[in-house]
Amino acid sequence: MKTLALTALGPITDIPPGEGRTYAVDGEMIAVFHLRDGSLRAVSAVCPHKGGPLADGQIDNKVVVCPLHLYAWDLATGCSQSGQPSINVYPVREDEGRILLGE
């Protein structure tokens, strides 16, 4: 995991369940996903394959699928399921309805 200073990104209601939104934090573009099981995941926002916007991808409780060419990455580890480079993952959690990124 990459280290980031702890940052509050706003209310968790900003991200509908099962979707993702992009945030610019400390010069990095980070896609935060609100899983249907209620938990949060944060990964780098840009697909390493062809620069696709990962926050626009479809997710389940495990992976995100890039909307451009449908390559998939594990949201917890950042590992590609289809032989692509890994993506960064960041610590993220919910605290009293707020999204807290970093540590």
């Binding site: 900003d14 509908p16 939104r21 992009t22 926002a45 840009v46 916007p53 626009d56």
Partner: peptide
């Protein structure tokens, strides 16, 4: 939905 039309892109590193 909230942020339905919010950008998902940094719009700098893309092709």
């Amino acid at each position: 939905t909230p942020g339905q039309f919010r950008t998902s892109l940094p719009l700098t590193v893309l092709p």
